[in-house]
Structures are given as structure tokens and as C-alpha cells.
């Protein structure tokens, strides 16, 4: 493709050199590509294969089911709850975390004293292991835990009482509040990463446009909404895509928070947790593979839809 636009080169030596360069390029790419094909593409296709069989873990296929597992999924109440929960989580968590991430990025993008410290501090929760921070969170929101004490000390209890919550509440144990607790936890821990993405996007905006806006008399608020926010579109696209893919893969926090059954009452049953449950609790590998196939198709389709929403994305 690019060769056509380049001026014709003559001479054998030049061509040999080009070929060697290409060979070296392929050689470098061969190992990671082979790993990618086997470990990512290969396993994905293998999951498609397993999902249409009655499959024994140890001995492999027993009988052909065709689309039987997928039909069963459509009538599986718990799977449908898992889909609903994962979608709910995605719809709430992604915009919330994007907003917090952008807010933090704008703050630490100012030329203020100690901004390196703030950048590090806001990013800090993201480097903690998800297992450790989830256990910490469970303690924070347990009945009579730090969260309950702080809202009591701040005099917020009348507000919570109006919403129907007593002075102590089992936030992770109540089916109505368990998923929202996880959403807040993950919004907190992931907003630092999103901040980093947004920071990179913010710094790619040329200073010229801000100068032009200033000359036109735009205030800070106007500059943000009319200049910064629209120019961040590639950033929004990237963060939203990464966010949606990550959100649909929700697992660690619900596995630790609610166990393999998504307790309480399926409130924390996500699609990936249900996959895990089918594979390792029910020991039904083909059914788990079918869940994986559905999840793969959704995750594969999501960025395509998002591309529509955000228009054509950047070159990558």
C-alpha cells in the first residue's frame, strides 16, 4: 500500500536490504504473534468448539449438543440475572468513573503546587490488589463499620433514614445495596487509571486553542465545555471502550464480596462469576464455555457500537 506512494527505487542491493528488513520485522513479531494466536485466538475458538458439545473435563466431548447450551442459557433465570447485573454495573459504573477520572485529571493538570503528589495519591488505589482492597472495603461498609460511623458523625443519618436505612446497615449483605457498594468501590479504585488516560489526552490538546479561546473572552467553565470536552473525544472513546470491556468482565470484587454464588440473592452475580460458577462449582465446562462465547460476542460488539456513538475513532 505504502510502496505505491513511494518513488520507485532501482538497484538489487536496495531490494535485498528491504527484504532483510522485512524478514527481521516478521522475525520479531513472530513470537508474540504466535503466543497471541495460540493463547488468545486459539483458546477463544476452542471455547466455541467446547460450547457445542457435552464436554467432560478429563475426557473431552461426549455428545454433540449443537446450540443446546445456548437455548438453555436463554431460559436460565440466574444467567439472565447475571446479564442484568453486568449491564447495570456497566451503565452506572463506566460514566461515573469517567466523570471522576476526568474531574481528577483536570485538577491535576493545573499548574498547582504539589501536583505530582496529587497525581500519585489519586492513582494510588489503582495499584493496590483488587482482592486486598475489596476485603478492606467489606470491613469499611459492614454494619457499624467506618462508613456507618462517619455518616453518623457528619449528621447524615436523617438523610439515610429518609432513604430507608437505619444508623447501621449491612451494605454488602442487603441485595438492594450490594451491587451499588461494589460500583462505588470500583469507581474509587479505577478512577485513578482513568485520570491517567485523560491526563494524557488533556496534554495532547494544543495550547493554541486555549489562547484563542481566551482571546475570544471564554471563561473557565465555557473553555472546559466548549473547547476541552469536545477536543477530548478520542480520550472519551478510549476510556469508554476500556471501561466497558473491563466492566463486562467484572469478577474479582463480586467473587470476594459475595462468594461463588453471587450472594446475597444473586445481587452480586455477574456474567463472569456465573461462568466461574458453571465451570468450577457445577463442573459443567461446556455450559461455562457457552457463557464465555456470549460474553465474547458482547465484548466484541461493544466497541463497534461505541465507535458509532463517538464517530470514527483515532488511528489506533
Amino acid at each position: 500500500m505504502t510502496a505505491a506512494t513511494q518513488p520507485q527505487r532501482t538497484g538489487r542491493v536496495r531490494r535485498v536490504g528491504e527484504r532483510q528488513e522485512a524478514l527481521a520485522g516478521y522475525a520479531f513479531i513472530a513470537v508474540p504473534m504466535a503466543l497471541f494466536l495460540v493463547l488468545n485466538i486459539g483458546t477463544t475458538l476452542y471455547a466455541f468448539f467446547i460450547s457445542v458439545w457435552d464436554w467432560n473435563v478429563r475426557t473431552g466431548p461426549r455428545s454433540f449438543l449443537g446450540l443446546g447450551n445456548f437455548e438453555r442459557l436463554l431460559n436460565d433465570d440466574i444467567f439472565l440475572i447475571a446479564v442484568k447485573n453486568s449491564l447495570y454495573y456497566t451503565v452506572i459504573w463506566v460514566p461515573l468513573t469517567m466523570a471522576i477520572g476526568l474531574f481528577l485529571a483536570v485538577i491535576v493538570n493545573q499548574k498547582i503546587r504539589g501536583r505530582t503528589f496529587f497525581r500519585a495519591a489519586f492513582y494510588f488505589p489503582a495499584i493496590a490488589s483488587s482482592a486486598a482492597i475489596t476485603i478492606l472495603w467489606i470491613f469499611l461498609v459492614q454494619p457499624g463499620g467506618l462508613f456507618d460511623e462517619i455518616r453518623g458523625a457528619l449528621g447524615l443519618n436523617p438523610l439515610f433514614a429518609a432513604m430507608g436505612y437505619g444508623p447501621t446497615h449491612n451494605w454488602m449483605g442487603d441485595p438492594a445495596t450490594a451491587m451499588n457498594s461494589i460500583i462505588i468501590l470500583n469507581a474509587w479504585t479505577t478512577s485513578g487509571t482513568f485520570m491517567l488516560f485523560y491526563l494524557a489526552a488533556l496534554q495532547s490538546i494544543s495550547n493554541d486553542v486555549y489562547e484563542a479561546a481566551a482571546i475570544d473572552g471564554a471563561g473557565a467553565w465555557q473553555t472546559f465545555w466548549r473547547v476541552t470536552f469536545p477536543l477530548l473525544r478520542p480520550g472519551h472513546f478510549f476510556v469508554a471502550t476500556v471501561g466497558v470491556i473491563g466492566a463486562l468482565q467484572l469478577f474479582d470484587q463480586v467473587r470476594i464480596g459475595g462468594g461463588p454464588n453471587g450472594d446475597p440473592n444473586n445481587a452480586l452475580m455477574s456474567v463472569v462469576l456465573y461462568l466461574y460458577n458453571a465451570a468450577f462449582i457445577q463442573v459443567n465446562l461446556d455450559y461455562a464455555a457457552a457463557v464465555g462465547v456470549v460474553l465474547f460476542l458482547v465484548i466484541f460488539a461493544a466497541p463497534l457500537v461505541q465507535r458509532r456513538i463517538f464517530g470514527s475513532g483515532p488511528a489506533w
Partner: peptide, 9 residues
């Protein structure tokens, strides 16, 4: 490539 990887698996 996919077919190859598949066979390998």
C-alpha cells in the same frame, strides 16, 4: 492462522 492455532489446541 486461526485454523493452525486451533489445531495446536
Amino acid at each position: 492462522a486461526m485454523a493452525l492455532a486451533f489445531a495446536a489446541c
